[in-house]
Simulated scan of single mutants.
Amino acid sequence: MSDNLKIALIQTHLNWENPLANRNNFEKKINSISEEVDLIILPEMFTTGFTMTPQHLAASESETTVAWMKKQATIAKAAIIGSMVYQEGDKFYNRLLFVDPDGSTKHYDKKHTFTLAYEDKVYQAGKTRLILEYKGFKLCPLICYDLRFPVWARNTEAYDVLIYVANWPKPRINAWDTLLKARAIENMAYTIGVNRIGTDDLGHEYSGHSAVYNVLGETMVHAEKETILYAQLEREHIISTRNKLKFLDDQDAFSLK
């Protein structure tokens, strides 16, 4: 068990429906990480951008990207998180992968598919949250539109870190900033948001605003340009704040069916 968790957030542009170019870009970014870190976080659909035409990709791309993530995690000696277009048979998922440096993987399929972009017509929605332990920290990784649904993020497992990977567009970036901070405050958990920058082939502009908020909702790091952000999450901050304030003890008792 570690007393802290060192993380790197990669905020960059994405090449439209071009997994090879995106993997090459992220490989360069990962290789340029200047600090020793435990966890590297990539945006939503980091190999393609937020595409609604996954059939344009070769079926083999899913496993190619998983293999690439395993290789990068091993070389970096750090876990890697990011979501991708994942194909199983004739079905597609917006799937978040957590890849441990030892090569083991866990995944989460996006629960709230973005109906405004007809994501619900293209991708299968997930049904189960993923709570995982890494270096003694309990992590809850979610995807983009999930951010708008606080009950789905509700901290009933005493997780320590809430993570959102996203392609969140510039016109609604105020909601991104506000909701990330709210999720941190209401769940008394470090909350991380990793977004992309640039303009996609559909003309949607992305302004980043990747950030880390502490248990009190205070901003630790934030950026709007292409960059790698670093932060250190401290176990003592979580324990001391929760022991002092005990807000999670008073939350309403209900469960999702």
Rank of each mutant, 00 (worst) to 15 (best):
G89D: 06
R196V: 15
P141S: 13
Q55D: 04
N18L: 09
A21H: 07
I163G: 05
G126Y: 07
P54D: 05
A184C: 05
N18Y: 08
V212Q: 02
N187L: 02
P150D: 14
H107K: 15
E36F: 09
E234A: 12
K106Q: 15
T105E: 07
W176I: 00
M220T: 00
W16L: 03
N155Y: 13
E205L: 08
I197H: 04
P150M: 10
N187W: 02
A231H: 02
H204Y: 07
D146R: 03
W152L: 13
D38R: 01
I238W: 06
S104M: 01
P19F: 04
A73H: 01
A21Y: 05
D200V: 03
A59Q: 05
L97K: 14
P19G: 06
I185H: 04
L9W: 07
E88D: 13
F50Q: 09
E205T: 07
Q11F: 06
S104G: 13
V85M: 11
L14N: 01
N155A: 15
I40T: 00
V37S: 14
N15T: 03
A223Y: 02
Y159F: 15
L233K: 12
A189S: 15
I40C: 01
L130C: 06
L202Y: 09
I75H: 13
T156S: 15
N94G: 06
T105N: 08
T199D: 05
A189N: 03
Y123D: 11
M45D: 07
Y164G: 06
M52C: 08
L42F: 05
I33L: 12
S83P: 06
R183T: 09
L39V: 08
F26C: 04
K244E: 10
E35M: 01
K127M: 10
L180C: 13
A189K: 10
T128W: 09
A184G: 13
L162N: 12
F98S: 00
T156L: 15
Y134Q: 03
R183A: 15
H204F: 12
S83E: 11
W152H: 15
I10N: 09
G89Y: 09
L96G: 05
Q55C: 08
T65P: 02
K106Y: 12
F50A: 11
A231S: 12
A253Y: 06
A59M: 10
M69A: 02
E224K: 01
L139R: 07
L180Y: 00
H107Q: 04
E61C: 11
E36N: 12
R235T: 07
N214V: 07
P141T: 08
E218W: 02
S210N: 04
P43F: 11
I173V: 10
Q11G: 05
A78D: 00
I41L: 12
N31T: 04
K135D: 11
S207W: 00
A253N: 07
E63H: 14
K246D: 11
Y118M: 05
A59V: 02
G193N: 01
K71D: 04
L179C: 09
P101D: 11
A211K: 01
G49Y: 14
A184E: 00
K28Y: 08
H112N: 08
W16S: 12
N4E: 13
E234D: 15
E36T: 03
D120C: 04
H13V: 10
